[in-house]
Amino acid sequence: MSQPMDGNEMRSLTLRLLGEIAPEADLTSLQPDVSFRDQLDLDSMDFLNFVVALHKEFQIDIPEADYPKYMTLNGCLAQLSAARS
């Protein structure tokens, strides 16, 4: 595990990774409890690339069975906090 990261850092890093997947999206109006797929028109390839980006950036391993937990921003942040605590 690398150095500690506060919630804001985690949030902005997650949004940056999301922005790389959906560069045209306005992430400032992202609703934290609505799925990325519905808001950003992510397909399964986009979503796979997103979780792989989380894996690389946060150095966490995510079992495929847990992927659905990462479908929303709040879901992501909860999982990332738990994984890094």
Partner: peptide, 17 residues
């Protein structure tokens, strides 16, 4: 596919497509 992906590292998992 579920079983196969469990044996694969995250970066090498397959999509059913």
């Amino acid at each position: 596919l579920k079983q196969e992906n469990e044996t694969r590292p995250m970066t090498e998992r397959l999509l059913y497509g």
